[in-house]
């Protein structure tokens, strides 16, 4: 009987531990520079953001504040994430939290600050990495993927749309483990395909910069036309002989006049067409959920570097 009770107690304890793994938090106020080890300067403008941002151990990678993953799932996921990081040389973060918000941009600010003011990507050039933010806020659950540093070049807006749609069912239905595995699969697949923003680079502050591309064929056509016009003008300078077609220099204005003017209205007609609007509505992704417009241009966070996002999904 005692053995049975001990077994049940052990099972209970094990079961309790399996249900959730709390992220390790640190106290920013007790740390130098509020625990920020990146190059961002902490000023009055961003101090509140820094303080508001949870201070976490960047090596954990999965921050399940909502307690949706079991420890087994956590471990399996962590192993997969470590493999992904080794393969891509870019950081990887999952944040799950119930974070009350009014607008989608609040989710983005939270996620960007979470990445910027913790040590994510610090061992990689330009702090490259991705952050999957699942907001389990009951009133309006939301999720989106945010990319930082060179990750913006591999996972552009179009690829993120595929990814966000691809994991929607799992995330929406609460199958987070399956959803995250699928998410990693997508990232690895896209990484294998190479950079999708080939004409862009990321600057030191993490902002996308369009590369200079030289439109050679267009310039050749343009210069050929200019050359033709110039050569015609130059050739004409050598041709001074011109046929006289008019005699206006010999007109006697004193005796010349217009003797008859008649303007008779004949007909009129009106045609019309509808003006098509040039601005199309952006970003709706089907009936089951709506999404933000999104863009592949870098967003500036509240303080840190630039980043990109997929536009997010509600549900």
């Amino acid at each position: 009987m005692k053995k049975k009770i001990l077994f049940l107690l052990l099972l209970f304890l094990v079961g309790f531990q399996v249900e959730a793994k709390e992220p390790t938090l640190c106290d920013r106020d007790s740390l130098p520079n509020h625990g920020v080890h990146k190059k961002w300067k902490i000023t009055e403008n961003n101090l509140d953001n820094v303080k508001r941002t949870p201070c976490v151990d960047a090596s954990e990678k999965i921050y399940d504040f909502a307690g949706v993953l079991t420890e087994e799932e956590y471990d399996a996921l962590k192993a997969r994430i470590d493999k992904y990081i080794r393969r891509t040389n870019m950081d990887f973060v999952i944040v799950i939290e119930s974070y009350p918000y009014q607008t989608d941009s609040e989710n983005e600010d939270y996620a960007a600050d979470f990445y910027d003011y913790n040590d994510f990507g610090i061992e990689f050039e330009k702090y490259s990495g991705t952050l999957f933010f699942r907001n389990t806020y009951e009133k309006d659950p939301y999720y989106d993927v945010y990319t930082f540093g060179d990750a913006q070049l591999y996972y552009d807006y179009d690829r993120l749309q595929v990814l966000l749609d691809g994991v929607y069912d799992n995330i929406h239905e609460g199958n987070y483990y399956a959803g995250f595995i699928r998410y990693i699969d997508y990232l690895e697949d896209f990484y294998r395909q190479g950079k999708s923003l080939k004409n862009y680079t990321v600057d030191e502050d993490g902002y996308l910069q369009k590369n200079y591309t030289y439109p050679l064929p267009e310039f050749i056509v343009f210069s050929t036309i200019i050359t033709f016009i110039v050569m015609v003008i130059l050739v004409r300078k050598n041709k001074m002989i011109a046929k006289a077609e008019e005699a206006k220099d010999y007109l006697d204005p004193a005796t010349s006049k217009i003797t008859h003017k008649e303007d008779k209205f004949v007909s009129t007609y009106t045609t019309s067409y509808r003006i098509t609007s040039s601005s199309s509505s952006g970003g709706s992704f089907g009936g089951s959920f709506g999404g933000g417009g999104g863009s592949f241009h870098s967003h500036s966070g509240s303080s840190g570097g630039g980043h990109s996002s997929g536009g997010g999904r509600h549900g």
Binding site: A247, Y250, L251, D252, T255, S256, K257, I258, T259, H260, K261, E262, D263
Partner: peptide
């Protein structure tokens, strides 16, 4: 219609 009488 325009009519004229012009001397050159």
């Amino acid at each position: 219609i325009r009519g004229g009488n012009m001397d050159y």
